[in-house]
Design a protein around this nucleic acid. Structure first.
Lengths: 191, 191
DNA sequence: CGAGCTTGCCTAAATCCTTTAGGAACATGC
DNA sequence: GCATGTTCCTAAAGGATTTAGGCAAGCTCG
């Protein structure tokens, strides 16, 4: 019988495609096996477990987004950079909803520390160099931006914004205006 | 054999408790049946399916949060109200992580329209009456606040903010300052 | 080239979750 | 007390996860 040529790499990639097609929840070792026309047990030489598969898909998504973000930020600063970075997340989520959902998977601390997640934080910090914030406000701002990007995209993707007026593209661009204004004019703590 | 006295209500409540204890992903019809010391099949007279159970837990969480929010907003306005509302979400998520995760479940449009989700939007709108925004900026602001609340809480809960300095409580209160400043000084669109 | 080793994929089997079908015990109303 | 409907049960089928052990395809050497 001919060999299918399975590798962890190929399985994870197939899992990611599956996630985008049918949703991350539906990604299962069995489904991936079916896609390669191979018996389920065969995958267990390449994957430790079902959770391992999901984790690897999450890591792939984080890397892909970080790569896109790095490219988007190159040569940009200030509001330009802010918009470019924000768009990376939003576009990625629209193009790859399953992968984006995977990236939301809660990783255990060691895995998270070794993931592309740290690159994301670094890039957001880099972006903030275009504004005038000193520690610890910079950290607060990193967290705020992360919250807005993640929150907005995940609500939009989940249908949280009813498809009513005004359209979400407009809200998105006004959100960028708002964030830019906020960063340029960061308030001092209240008494 | 004595009867367990199952009702949909009690099953959903037990499922919610289970979610808080072991995580929403681990909530399963079987697990709930075990908790009542009853055979799995017995639950299917009260629940349509596993998905039905999860949906009902989500709806319960949305209601509980809306109730808390309504109480928190009573008699408050402006920044006071903003902080109170934001704290409702954050506190609820910390007290009931499983339920909070459930509330993130994607609901089909009709279910969503009949859920407490609409009350949340209404309350955020009510909060914004303390600021001076007119349509469509008010809608943009509703969405922005929703994004920040949801994004922040879900990142914090997922360990997205590494447990490093400064502590998240500080970031949270600076985030409130920032949102308040932003709403009081909402920027006009860029050309 | 062919002996031997490694690896890749298989079959088999255990365990668990979901879901449906139909039966028995219990509670209630007449 | 009996008819009736509800509540919970047993039984069974279908899928997913995971482990154990086996055969054969494809390398690596002499």
């Amino acid at each position: 019988m001919a060999r299918a040529g399975l590798t962890t790499e190929r399985l994870v990639r197939a899992g990611a495609e599956l996630a985008d097609e049918v949703g991350f929840e539906q990604v299962t070792v069995s489904a991936v096996a079916r896609r390669f026309d191979v018996k389920v047990a065969s995958l267990y030489s390449h994957l430790k477990s079902s959770h391992d598969l999901k984790t690897r898909i999450a890591l792939l998504a984080l890397e892909e987004m970080a790569d896109r973000a790095a490219e988007a930020l190159a040569g940009r600063a200030g509001k330009d950079a802010l918009i470019a970075l924000a768009n990376v997340y939003r576009d990625y989520a629209h193009e790859h909803p399953g992968r984006y959902a995977a990236a939301q998977l809660r990783l255990d601390p060691e895995t998270a520390a070794a993931s592309a997640g740290v690159r994301h934080a670094q890039m957001t910090r880099a972006l903030l160099r275009g504004y005038d914030l000193s520690e610890p406000d910079q950290t607060h701002a990193v967290r705020l931006l992360g919250s807005v990007f993640h929150g907005y995209v995940s609500l939009e993707l989940g249908g949280g914004f009813s498809h009513s007026a005004p359209d979400t593209q407009q809200t998105w661009s006004r959100t960028m205006d708002a964030l830019d204004a906020l960063l340029r004019n960061w308030p001092s703590p209240t008494p």
